[in-house]
């Protein structure tokens, strides 16, 4: 045999090997029933706990062993990925507007998706609070303090993050109340607040690490659950939670993506998964992970005691998500008009 022959045979073997590994991996991953939950940034710990409980529950009920895959990122960015074709079975995003966008652009689920499950398809709620450095050295006690000169505010980008949009609307709602709906003054206030933001991360978790681990900023506008988690992770001696006089009721909704579950044949298990979120067992897990449960009787008392009383407005004050999205976050909306990155 000549050298070339041997070389060619070796090459062929190498390519064949690579291909067989490739197909082995792909087909191996497909053997089991698999759900893909595409979620927003701060729900990592919540769904880890929920998934473990549901997998056990489902096996008890049907004898079927399933795997649940998670993908996390900024809510808007995740919606974009699903629109671009990520094969999600269920979407659990930060706000209805993002699932609306998926329904409109991909047509993989009906536009009335939010009426299909109880309570606006939101099995848990949360709100927006402030996380400040221990002792609150900059004396940030309410939304008005965010416009003070020299205060550095950390919040994610409303274009990609759902939490950031709740932050933005909560601030807006406070300003409308404080300035008696004087539009010029509200805009002036929002512009000043945005000037105090040195960096816009793409997702809530990115902002939390910027604030807690990189030590940037005086105040983090944060999901309540995310603020509690930061306290639990880093110790209550590092940060304080400040509850503003007014905040917004954040309803992170969940939805089944019909076209994907039908193509994959996972409709039954995906539907059961979403319904499981409303069961007392899941509601208790939800409260334990710092989200406000819908069913307070199911939650442990000590978990409930952690949630402060806050005056909450709802998204209806902005005419629903479709209108809020158009007025504030779409191209040319109020955010685009008011946000000018500091140079």
């Amino acid at each position: 045999m000549t050298r070339q022959r041997i070389r060619r045979i070796l090459e062929a073997a190498l390519i064949l090997g690579a291909f067989s590994i490739c197909f082995g991996v792909v087909s191996g991953a497909r053997a089991q029933t698999e759900l893909l939950n595409v979620s927003y940034d701060p729900t990592r710990e919540l769904y880890r706990a929920i998934n473990a409980a549901f997998i056990e529950e489902w096996q008890k009920k049907t004898g079927q062993k399933i795997t649940i895959r998670q993908s996390h990122g900024g809510s808007g960015a995740q919606a974009r990925t699903v629109i671009d074709g990520l094969n999600a079975d269920v979407l659990t995003l930060a706000l209805a507007g993002d699932i609306d966008a998926v329904a409109e652009r991909s047509q993989k689920l009906p536009l009335n998706w939010q009426t299909r499950l109880p309570q606006n398809s939101s099995p848990y709620t949360s709100t927006i609070v402030f996380l400040v450095r221990k002792g609150n050295p900059k004396a940030i006690n309410d939304w008005g303090d965010l416009a003070k000169p020299g205060v550095q505010i950390i919040t994610p980008n409303p274009k990609t993050s759902g939490g950031a949009r709740w932050n933005y609307l909560a601030a807006w709602a406070w300003a409308e109340k404080a300035y008696n709906k004087d539009d010029a003054k509200v805009r002036d206030y929002m512009g000043t607040v945005l000037k105090n933001v040195p960096v816009l991360d793409t997702g809530a978790r990115g902002s939390t690490t910027t604030f807690t681990q990189r030590g940037i900023g005086d105040v983090l506008l944060s999901w309540e659950n995310e603020a509690f988690l930061a306290l639990a992770e880093f110790g209550a001696d590092k940060f304080d939670i400040v509850v503003p006089s007014l905040s917004i009721l954040a309803e992170p909704p969940v939805a089944l993506i019909d076209a994907n579950v039908d193509a994959k044949g996972t409709r039954a298990v995906a539907q059961a998964y979403l319904e499981f979120l409303y069961t007392p067992q899941a509601q208790a897990i939800i409260a334990k992970n710092f989200y406000r449960p819908r069913n307070v009787e199911a939650a442990a008392k000590e978990d409930l005691a952690r949630f402060p009383k806050v005056d909450l407005i709802t998204i209806d004050a902005f005419g629903g998500w479709a209108k809020a999205q158009k007025d504030h976050f779409a191209d040319g909306g109020s955010f685009d008009q008011l946000y000018k990155p500091a140079r």
């Binding site: 990592r44 895959r69 998670q70 993908s71 996390h72 990925t81 690490t209 880093f234």
Partner: peptide, 21 residues
């Protein structure tokens, strides 16, 4: 698409872990 354990390479996995504290 950041599907944990399925489409995350090592650099992506590092970022995910870092973001999970």
């Amino acid at each position: 698409g950041r599907i944990r354990g399925l489409t995350t390479t090592m650099p992506l996995h590092v970022e995910i872990l870092y973001n999970e504290y």
